[in-house]
Amino acid sequence: METTQTNLLWAVRDAANGDAWISFYRIYATMVRQFVRRLGLPDAESDDVTQEVLLVAHKSLQHGTYDPTKGRFRSWLFGVARRQSLAAMRERQRRTRVQRVTQDTGDDLLDILADKHAEETARNLWEREWRYALLEEALRHAEAGIGTKAMQAFTLHAIQNQSAECVAEQLGITPASVYVYKGRVLAAIQEWTRRFEGD
């Protein structure tokens, strides 16, 4: 089945479809930037790498380099992001002539990216950032489409773990409404993210 996300990817191929590119950019920029930052590149360089990765992605979609039948888009993009991050880190090491940057655990960042065995770690990180980026976008859509009170009830009760009674009192609604609002927001988030699962 062709998912909405696939539609989005196809829409990005159409140079005239600016909206598709904006949506695409918002989701993937968040993901790539967080991924690269967590690998340890400083903010300024993370932004550069993010931009490079997204440009490569955009061009590839336009020119058909990425073939949807051969795998998920984000798996393909992982390869792009990994190569770009590796290049940026090597350049940084060469330039700064400092010792390799290590994590708190003592692992070498370059090893994580370059070593086949360590690739799995990076891939896990990538998948995690994908999920967070999707949820961020889903939350954004929920906030735009659902009333303020419902979002407040959801945040206080479901996110901040306040009791339904306490939240109801603060917002001047019944505890039953708090549960209804929570269910409504969760459903909206799940419905939105479901559309992207095939990607």
Partner: peptide, 21 residues
């Protein structure tokens, strides 16, 4: 990872949302 988000259990979903927020 990579699985259908809609089936993720509520507690995990909320935990992830807390991170996002």
């Amino acid at each position: 990872e990579g699985g259908p988000l809609a089936n993720a259990d509520e507690a995990t979903l909320l935990a992830d949302l807390r991170v996002v927020i």
